[in-house]
Design a protein around this nucleic acid. Structure first.
Lengths: 204, 204, 204, 204
DNA sequence: AATGAATGAGACTTCATTCAT
DNA sequence: TATGAATGAAGTCTCATTCAT
């Protein structure tokens, strides 16, 4: 019975998180009421509170999920033998972002956006965001380091700074996609490639 | 009392907007109560509602202000004779962002972040955001076009796509600054310059 | 100056009462705000409060006016040499009610209706209503007495009781006119006449 | 818990309506606050709003109840074999009105009076009032028709017009009872009988 | 464990009235 | 006297959370 119960508990939690994710993607953290989540999850109020102590705990759970969504991918990318160039990495990530966003059950990038806003005054979410994004940016640092080894990136620059810029392109992509709706992985990669190839020839 | 009133009304509205901005920068749109804004503004409830019809109207006003903050600058930049390069534009803008953010009375970038999140489910703010950011991005399109004329950017790329990427670096900067706190205009510009100078020599 | 001022004061009070009457006929006592009255009167808040101490005082003034509207007429009717029969009195009064109600500036019967409702829990208006309606009903007592002298009404009945019924037809007429809109002085008088002529011949 | 719930819900609604009726009979619709109803009902704010969506909905419910109070009776009267004469009908109805008004829990005639006033500017209540009073007046039309068949009422008169007058006596009775306090079913019936028997013998 | 009715603090907003100019 | 901006008490309603069944 313990194992069944443990699985059961996880399944229920997941059910609630999915319901909440759906609601929050639609209406944000604050316009989403517990009544919404309860209705959407198909459970009762008491049941939901049996799995999460509070609304904040549910919010933290979905924020975690939304903020982790991109990171999963990098485990795969980095584990490949062939190191990716900045442009390749960007392309792969953006494709993944779009694919993930379009999954049924609610656009996680919308939820991520809520999490960014929330992290400004919610220490719990801020901590999660810092943790996830530090890890994520570290992947870009690795990308930068490899490019320096390749010689495609000057070696006298701090790879952390390059990572800041590369990682920093993601929020811009996500925001423009949600707000203006006219960016695509293709358009963005094209723009990036133009910039990467924009400089005068490297000094020998 | 006509003359007094016109100025007075504007001053009062500004007073309320400043109070609200301060509160929202601190606590976000939803944790900011009208009671907070009323207290912070030093006015009475009735007075505040004499200038704004609802909390939503106040939120729209500060969202507008926060979303416009960067754009003001560009009027100045673009009016100069000397067109700026992408890197120069980025440097100037980031300096401005930081300076604006550090102004007393509340970090507008925090408010901007709230506005991004809100625009997902608030049509009024979404409209403002779209308007402001379309204009802002257009400035970057101009920067890209000039770089193409200079020959520092390939001429066979859509300058809109370049603008997507350049403009798209701002949210990333703002988000990292608020969340991780370790990006500066210097570090970001260094990373960007490294990327700009990273490609193989242009094909002749 | 005193006389001019006195006239002026009265004119202003009348201006305010008319404005209030108009608003109340439209929206009732409670949905009518002082702001409505102030706007409709064309005066300023301060000015209005210079002529009436409170909203209740204005309400009392228009209630008085509305409750007196029918009574004015009776002075005329009763002062005639020729006493009216119940049916004649009813016809004259109903015509007057309709004519008064249709005067521009707000249907006084609507205001009267508000006054009835208000008098249930507003002692001031209750007192006014009692006073006005006692006088009004007394006129019907006179009508009944004359009919008894005529022999058109049994002499062994208390004329007060007849007056209750005759006077009591007015609220019913007013209410049906406002609510159902299908009663007219003609239809009502026809129905009344049928009832008056309905009985078997008087026992000798 | 289905069965319990269905009954329970109705009982709770009734509990709230009774509380509201009591308050409104005392203070009218507008001086009655939700806090009053909540206190009087013995429930919490949330509970009350679980059964009614708004104060207006509660008002509509008690207006409905008050406006229906007289009508219930007629079902009984009309279903009797023996058709009632106008005078008999009036006597029965007035007795019922007084008995209903004196029931503990708030005088419904006071609430009816509020409903009349409210219907002038509240379409929902106006619709209910029109519906209920149209039905109620139709009963009087039936009374008039029977009297015409009896020969106690001229057959050349529109029974609708007679119904207008007969039905129209009720508001007058109710209003005088509340306002002046000196009418009784006895006095009113006496006055009515005097009028009914007042005419000269019918022309042959 | 599950249910969902009940709780009640607190949010937003209105509006009669005042008072400095 | 006149103005109308300002006041702030009070009203309606929501919603995260609990607990008897």
């Amino acid at each position: 019975m313990p194992k069944v119960t443990a699985e059961h508990r996880l399944a229920r939690r997941e059910q609630i998180v999915q319901a909440a994710l759906h609601c929050v993607a639609e209406n944000g953290f604050h316009k989403t009421t517990m009544a919404d989540v309860i209705r959407e999850s198909g459970l009762s109020a008491g049941a939901v509170y049996g799995y999460f102590r509070s609304k904040d705990e549910i919010i933290a759970a979905i924020a975690d999920q939304a903020l982790s969504a991109v990171d999963e991918l990098f485990e795969g990318i980095l584990s490949t033998e062939d190191p990716l160039s900045p442009a390749e990495a960007m392309r792969v990530v953006l494709d993944h972002v779009v694919k993930t966003a379009e999954r049924s059950g609610g656009d996680v990038t919308r939820v991520g956006l809520q999490a960014w806003a929330e992290s400004v005054h919610n220490p719990t979410i801020a901590a999660v965001a810092r943790e996830k994004y530090t890890i994520l940016r570290t992947h870009y640092t690795a990308v930068a380091r490899r490019a320096q080894l390749d010689g495609t990136l000057p070696s006298d620059v701090d790879p952390e700074h390059v990572a800041q810029v590369l990682f920093g392109m993601l929020p811009g992509f996500i925001l423009q996609r949600l707000l203006l709706g006219d960016v695509t992985p293709e358009s963005y990669t094209a723009g990036l490639n133009a910039l990467l190839g924009s400089a005068a020839p490297r000094r020998p």
